[in-house]
Design a protein around this nucleic acid. Structure first.
Length: 877
DNA sequence: AACTCCACGC
DNA sequence: GACGTACGTGGAGTTG
């Protein structure tokens, strides 16, 4: 190794400096962050300037040290650490952890002693050592290879104490600093020194005699007051020197080999910055990482095809389909790249599309292709008349399975994560927002080929990781086939009765106008009801209603607040109704009409298969997973979702209590399993057990509360969440949960086990081996830790339910195919599947769908499916 | 363009 | 006891 460099940081001292140097910053959660912020600034500067190979941050441990045995008043009279600072230490620790910088403290010793001991060892081992502190005491450690940086007034300015610097400043050698302290004392550490001797005299004496001991032996050469003072405080001087001396033989339990520093991953640091609200640092980091490594990209040779030739179209190729728009339905395709054993090729869109051999190759399932986002590629090509087949590996899906928390923008994003260079980000090539545009052909070709090359490398790495994690099956047998099925569902689309929507819209518009007039009348002035700000002024200032809750920016006007005010003023009820109808109008009528295809009257949602942390799907443009159902007015929207063919029906099948059944199975809770085996109403059963009553004594209110508790279990809400949904106190909610867990002791055991397991392994798993990593489960931050613990309990439940319905979709698709049925699977809404079916297939589906869904997996409790059908989604109830 | 607030589904 | 509390998507208003 060229040079070994050790950086040692005095953690407490730097935290203090940062705390007092900066104003008391708050993050959005009201936590003080100034010391953490300053600490981070210093850390970032050190990492950049010093490029250490080894690193350690030392902290003081506890209140007393071995020095207190020498002098019980050591550091006496010190101001207590302000709580605003103490509360920041856990964050500093967390920050160091994500930076992968070792930290250390040792009972009975101060950070100084750890630093001194390590710096001496390191110097002997041939290291360059840099010590960072705000405390000048450390300067005694300066030597040929040890430099001490002491922060000056601000936090970024430092003085570097080399032996020369010490000589210049004091006229002393570094090891004489302790003698100086011995004579003059140190008020900040409550070291007495010799009464009446200050810095000037101390230095003069040491220049003459060298050490405290020599001074004391040579007292006869001195005279007057000075001699007298030294004689009476002889013991003080010796003791003070001892106190000021850094222990170079501290019994540390780590060695230099343990404190290797090999860099950090910005992806791990950023979340902590976000948590702390370090906006400027986040920006610096994001842009910084891109600008300070414009990374001399190596040239990558490729062929820009002028004609399509056979060597481009072979088995086992990387296939890049560059779909231009985010919404890939009917999007342009910018171009293609193919990489295989014969070479790297850029295929301009028009050239490829005009080629018969290209089309045949794309549609040949035996020509295996590795892609990024299979569904996107398949659907985009389908709209262009090509049925892409043979998709063999999807880098996006693989990456999602391996770690769903890593949000992925493009190929370059995954490549960077896996340490593969050479690919450029889409944004850097295309720009974003209004400036986004297609580059020249040579630039585009280069970009696509680079993507392909990264995909080639990634596919190997990711496949290996999938196998190592025992997740290859999940990827290969579940998510990959599902991507194809979802692609079909999206492309088929759902027929919308546009006229129906427009009628509803006109009706709503009338009602809204009338409501608006009424509300303005009641308010005595006209204002924008949709503006929480203006509404807040009307309600809480003009009408003087009591503000129940505040938001960051003003009064809260949310529904739960308004409901509390409903009997105080007539206007409130009208506003709630206005909100409800307004939501229907803007989101569901206008929003939906915007995305209906004019010629076909269909909507084509996109299911995001690589987004949620639990394994569920999400749906966008339009979101068809949140169409109203709870309130009748909203539910009517579903009348507009109709079959695509005359006389067909909408057939909807949903799992009954799938999450609680999964819970019963995973937890092997005898009581809960028994309930499902007897097909009991689970909320009633819960009420019986929690309230200790017989079935006929369960009131509707008890059942409602039990239902909320079950809801809480399934979604992993906290006692606070439960208290909010039931309108009770947190304590009462907590009491409910305890009683629940007493009745379902298998569940309680599961909850305890899963949290312990997650702490040990760092992740939790679902039935089909989906993982969710929970790094925060060991956090010292209560909130983060609690959240991670609830997530640990909830994700196996929700995620396994997601696994099951995905499996059911695959099984269903196969059945429809094998039986040659015309029915189409249209939508998945987490626990239900929506089909459109010709009338003659209804009887078949009534048997087939529940059969397939209920047996997608075999649990130790039965799965139950309910179904319904009708002329519209509304009627399938 | 990016934020906040609010509301819909499971 | 702290502290802020399931996962998503989308619209309107506001701010920069």
């Amino acid at each position: 190794m060229a040079s070994k460099k050790l950086v040692l940081i005095d953690g407490n001292s730097i935290a203090y400096r940062a705390f007092f140097a900066l104003p008391l910053l708050n993050n959005d959660k009201g936590v003080h962050t100034n010391a953490v912020y300053g600490f981070t600034m210093i850390l970032m500067r050190i990492l950049e300037e010093e490029q250490p190979t080894h690193m350690l941050v030392a902290f003081d441990a506890g209140k007393t040290t071995f020095r207190h045995k020498t002098y019980s008043e050591y550091k006496g009279g010190r101001q207590k650490t302000p709580p605003e600072l103490s509360e920041q230490f856990p964050f500093i620790h967390e920050l160091l952890d994500v930076y992968k910088i070792p930290r250390y403290q040792l009972e009975n010793y101060e950070a100084d002693d750890i630093i001194g001991t390590l710096s001496k060892q390191a110097e002997e081992d041939g290291f360059e050592v840099k010590v960072i502190s705000g405390d000048k005491d450390l300067t005694q450690l300066a030597s040929e290879h040890v430099t001490i940086s002491i922060t000056k007034k601000g936090i970024t300015e430092v003085d570097s104490y080399t032996p020369e610097f010490v000589k210049e400043k004091y006229g002393l050698t570094p090891d004489q600093i302790i003698d100086m302290k011995g004579l003059m004392g140190d008020s900040s550490d409550n070291i007495p020194g010799v009464q009446g001797i200050g810095e000037k005299t101390a230095i003069k004496l040491l220049k003459e005699y060298g050490t405290v001991e020599n001074v004391l032996e040579s007292l006869d050469q001195l005279k007057g007051k000075l001699k007298e003072r030294l004689e009476t405080h002889r013991e003080d001087a010796i003791m003070s020197k001892e106190l000021a001396t850094i222990n170079l033989n501290t019994p540390i339990t780590i060695s230099i080999d343990d404190i290797l520093y090999s860099g950090y991953n910005p992806q791990e640091v950023l979340p902590v910055f976000r948590e702390l609200g370090f906006k400027t640092l986040i920006d610096k980091f994001d842009t910084g990482s891109e600008t300070d490594e414009p990374e001399e990209i190596e040239e990558l040779p490729f062929v820009a095809a002028e004609e399509i030739t056979d060597e481009m179209l072979v088995d086992d190729s990387i296939f890049v389909v560059e779909v231009w728009n985010e919404n890939y339905h009917r999007s342009d395709i910018a171009g293609f790249a193919i990489i295989n054993e014969n070479g790297r090729y850029y295929l301009p869109f028009g050239l490829a599309m005009d080629s018969g051999p290209f089309r045949k190759w794309a549609e040949n399932e035996h020509m295996r292709k590795t892609v990024f986002d299979a569904k996107r590629s398949i659907v985009a090509l389908k709209w262009k008349g090509i049925e892409l087949a043979g998709v063999d590996f999807d880098v996006l899906l693989a990456s999602y399975i391996l770690d769903a928390s890593q949000t992925v923008e493009d190929v370059a994003g995954i490549a960077k994560m896996k340490g593969i260079s050479g690919a450029r980000t889409d944004e850097s090539v295309y720009s974003k927002g209004a400036k986004r545009k297609l580059p020249e052909n040579d630039v585009l070709g280069d970009h696509l080929v680079r993507k392909g090359e990264a995909l080639r490398k990634l596919s190997k790495v990711l496949e290996k990781e999938l196998r190592e994690n025992d997740q290859y099956e999940l990827y290969h047998d579940l998510e990959m086939p599902l991507a194809i099925i979802l692609g079909k569902m999206e492309a088929i689309g759902v027929k919308v009765d546009v006229n129906k929507l427009k009628e509803m819209g006109a009706d709503l518009a009338q009602q809204l106008q009338a409501l608006e007039n009424k509300i303005h009348g009641l308010a005595g002035e006209s204002f924008n009801i949709n503006s929480p700000k203006q509404l807040g002024v009307i309600l809480f200032e003009k009408l003087e209603l009591p503000p129940v809750k505040k938001t960051k920016t003003g009064y809260s006007t949310s529904a739960d607040v308004l409901e509390k005010l409903a009997d105080r003023h007539e206007i409130v009820e009208q506003i709630l109704l206005y909100r409800q109808l307004g939501k229907l109008q803007s989101t569901y009528i206008e929003g939906l009409l915007k995305v209906v295809h004019e010629d076909t009257h269909k909507v084509h949602t996109r299911f995001n298969q690589a987004l949620t942390q639990t394994g569920r799907l999400s749906s966008t443009d339009p979101n068809l997973q949140n169409i109203p159902i709870r309130l009748e007015e909203g539910r009517k929207i579903r009348e507009a979702f109709v079959p695509s063919k005359e006389g067909w029906v909408i057939f909807a099948a949903d799992y009954s209590q799938i999450e609680l059944r999964v819970l019963a199975h995973i937890a092997q809770d005898k009581n809960l399993m028994e309930a499902f085996r007897n097909d009991m109403d689970v909320h009633t059963k819960t009420a019986m057990d929690v309230f200790h009553v017989e079935m006929d004594e369960v009131t509707s209110n008890m059942r409602r509360q039990a239902k909320a508790v079950n809801f809480g279990i399934v979604y992993g809400i906290s006692d606070y969440g439960l208290s909010q949904s039931l309108g009770i106190t947190r304590k009462e909610a907590s009491e409910f949960i305890s009683r629940y867990l007493e009745s379902f002791d298998g569940v309680k055991e599961y909850m305890d086990d899963i949290v312990r397991d997650a702490k040990q392994k760092g992740y939790v798993s679902t039935l089909l081996q989906r993982r969710r990593y929970l790094p925060e489960i060991t956090s010292r931050n209560f909130n983060l830790r609690s959240f991670a613990e609830r997530t640990a309990m909830n994700t196996p439940i929700q995620g396994s339910a997601a696994d099951i319905i995905k499996k059911a979709m695959i099984d269903m698709a196969r059945e429809l195919e094998e039986q040659g049925l015309q029915s189409n699977l249209l939508l998945q809404v987490h626990d239900e599947l929506i089909f459109e079916a010709p009338p003659e297939e209804i009887e078949i589906l009534k048997k087939l769908v529940p059969q397939v869904m209920e047996h997608a997996v075999e649990l130790d409790v039965p799965l139950k499916v309910d179904y319904a059908y009708g002329d519209s989604w509304y009627d399938a109830k």
